[in-house]
């Protein structure tokens, strides 16, 4: 039985244009096809490899970045859709050499095994804590369900979220520069 895999039409709109990106407070003019994924541009054009490829269909959360504070699956986000918006990747989360409380909490709980899901987990957690400063178990499940940790460190991520919530509360009481993103 013969099977044919015919040539498929080239992706439309392949012509490159200049897309303005604001990543971690820095402006980039990227010469790219507007159809490309934000993940590809971050990783290959800007060499920001903290956002990871895991599935290409927005199902695992390894590619999560923040766009205007909202968690976004960069593997299914067209780069042109986020032009001129405020993008935060894991590389831009620490401020003035100080780790974000969620990053600190991940270290304190010693969450990581392979660490491949960690950047996406941390950014999803940052977005969650901004919305719910003291999330219930159900809120954690609901908003983190789309992030896969194949090593199975979920109990530790949950514990780290709790510690980060306390740290952020303390910081905001001190009136300090609480983890804005």
């Amino acid at each position: 039985m013969a099977e044919t895999r015919g040539a498929q039409p080239a992706i439309s709109g392949a012509r490159a244009e200049v897309v303005e990106l604001r990543v971690n407070g820095i402006r980039h003019s990227v010469h790219t096809s507007p159809e490309r994924s934000l993940l590809s541009v971050l990783r290959e054009d800007l060499d920001l490899t903290g956002a990871k490829y895991g599935c290409g269909e927005g199902q695992c959360g390894a590619c999560t970045v923040l766009v205007d504070g909202q968690p976004v699956r960069s593997c299914i986000t067209r780069v042109s859709a986020v032009a001129r918006k405020k993008i935060t990747t894991i590389e831009g989360l620490a401020k003035n050499g100080r780790l974000h409380p969620v990053q600190e909490a991940f270290l304190e709980v010693d969450v990581m095994q392979c660490g491949y899901c960690t950047p996406g987990m941390i950014l999803s957690a940052v977005a969650l804590l901004k919305k719910h400063p003291h999330p219930s178990d159900e809120e954690i499940e609901r908003s983190m369900e789309g992030n896969v940790c194949r090593c199975g460190t979920y109990p530790r991520i949950r514990a780290a979220l709790r510690i980060a919530a306390q740290k952020m509360e303390l910081l905001s009481k001190e009136g300090g520069h609480a983890a804005g993103t």
Binding site: L48, T49, G50, I90, L99, F106, L107, D110, I122
Partner: peptide
């Protein structure tokens, strides 16, 4: 004793380079 992951900081800051993050001059895909 419980010692924390020695490469923890590189992981939480996205600095650790997995094989898929390696880039070489003139590299093609």
């Amino acid at each position: 004793k419980s010692l924390r992951k020695v490469s923890g900081t590189e992981v939480v800051t996205g600095q650790h380079r997995h094989a898929s993050d390696i880039k070489r001059p003139g590299m093609m895909y």
